[in-house]
Simulated scan of single mutants.
Amino acid sequence: MIRCIRIWTNDTGNSSFEEGSLSLGQGKPGDLIGATIAASSVSFRETQPDQALEWHDAPTYQLVLTLGGTLEFKTRDGGTFVIRPGDVLLAEDTKGTGHVWRIIGEEPWRRAYVILPQGADVGFTAKR
């Protein structure tokens, strides 16, 4: 199972989030594979510890793959969640009041941005 947090803009214009996972239904026992997802680009970024980004929307529909570092995200309604290495963020909140994040700890945040076609199915399943 790959942990995934989906963040989107709700009906009131604020960002909301839910925890879930990415489907890995193909393959064989011990080596599960997710469906292929079309992507228009992939880029990498590193941000040093003690950094934060104030209120903003996701610039586009994207997956953010955290390779290193730990972050805390916050929404306008006060909800928070933590992203750790190996987690995936499905960023759909491209409009509205947005979210903030801050790096927790001494490790830089290393990540890959995977830009997706709008509405691409990434196999997200919400945690029940």
Rank of each mutant, 00 (worst) to 15 (best):
P49H: 08
I7R: 05
L67P: 08
Q48L: 15
L22W: 01
S40K: 03
L89V: 02
I115V: 12
D121S: 10
P108I: 09
G68V: 13
Q118V: 06
G119T: 02
G13E: 13
D121T: 02
K127P: 01
Q62W: 05
L63G: 08
G119C: 10
E72Y: 10
G27I: 01
N14M: 03
A126R: 13
S16Y: 06
S15E: 07
L53I: 11
T9Q: 15
I5W: 14
L89Y: 06
S43K: 03
G98E: 00
A120R: 11
V122N: 10
Y61S: 06
K127D: 10
S23D: 05
P108R: 00
S15C: 11
G20W: 02
D87T: 10
S23C: 06
T125V: 14
Y113L: 13
V122P: 09
T66E: 01
T36H: 01
E19Q: 14
E72F: 08
G79F: 01
R76P: 11
R102W: 10
L24S: 14
G13H: 08
V82F: 14
E19A: 15
S21N: 08
T97G: 12
D50I: 06
E92P: 04
A52R: 05
W101V: 13
V122M: 11
V122G: 07
Q118M: 09
T94M: 14
R45K: 01
A120Q: 05
T12S: 15
A112P: 13
S41V: 00
G123W: 06
M1E: 08
Q62L: 14
E92H: 14
V42D: 02
R128E: 04
G30T: 08
F73C: 07
Q26P: 03
A58P: 06
Y113G: 06
W55Y: 07
D121N: 12
R3A: 09
G34M: 11
R76Q: 14
L71M: 15
G105E: 09
E92W: 02
D121H: 13
P85H: 02
L67N: 14
Q48W: 11
P49K: 09
A112H: 11
G69S: 07
E72P: 13
L71T: 15
I104D: 00
T75E: 05
